[in-house]
């Protein structure tokens, strides 16, 4: 199990996405591995990695501007689209991780955060049931399901199961082709 990605690790990768913050302090800037972020001036928006934004937010040193898709209307539209479509609709690859982090640490910066939290959970439930439904349909003749636009969190849910299953079937098939 040690060589598998866990959910906290997947969140760690998500923390590298960029987010806009409005600092309330002055600083020459941060030289970190992914680049130089700065200079920071009070009430001037700047893009930083998510982890840095959350770190500053927890010290009350900035205000976080939520990403564009984390808006009540946008999410409602997405939800409707998701319900009508057979396949997955396009979403941020790390939408669950980013929203979970922001809702945990920067609630007050997100308008309608209660509704948004609920909508994202509904959206996620909907997408999970979509995965379930498409997996219910697989047979030996038609082994593969279409998971285009699947998000990180949903990928984690099946990545331990599906490859192992497919490998086993392939293994059985190999001996079949011998004769």
């Amino acid at each position: 199990m040690e060589n598998e990605i866990t959910l906290p690790e997947s969140e760690f990768f998500a923390e590298n996405t960029k987010i806009t913050i409005i600092p309330n302090f002055k600083h020459a800037g941060f030289q970190i591995l992914s680049g130089f972020y700065g200079p920071l001036r009070p009430s001037v928006a700047i893009e930083v990695p998510l982890w840095l934004g959350v770190f500053l937010k927890r010290q009350q040193k900035c205000r976080i501007i939520p990403p564009a898709w984390m808006d009540l209307q946008v999410l409602k539209d997405k939800f409707e689209e998701e319900r009508k479509k057979e396949e997955f609709s396009e979403l941020d690859f790390y939408y669950m991780e980013v929203s979970s982090l922001l809702l945990a640490h920067a609630k007050e910066d997100i308008p309608n955060h209660v509704l948004i939290c609920r909508l994202i959970q509904d959206l996620q439930d909907l997408r999970t049931s979509k995965i379930r439904n498409s997996l219910q349909k697989i047979t030996v003749e038609n082994l593969y399901a279409n998971f285009k636009d699947i998000a990180s969190i949903e990928l984690q849910a099946i990545r331990r199961l599906l490859p192992a299953t497919y490998d086993s079937i392939d293994y059985m098939r190999k001996t079949e082709n011998n004769d």
Binding site: Q136, T165, I169, T175
Partner: peptide, 25 residues
């Protein structure tokens, strides 16, 4: 199957395996 080279039973078993996996999931 590998040893006997008798492919009669392995094809239905694959079907069984997939059906059981779907149920398991």
């Amino acid at each position: 199957n590998d040893f006997l080279q008798d492919g009669k039973f392995i094809t239905p078993l694959q079907k069984v395996f997939v059906a059981r996996f779907v149920h398991l999931y």
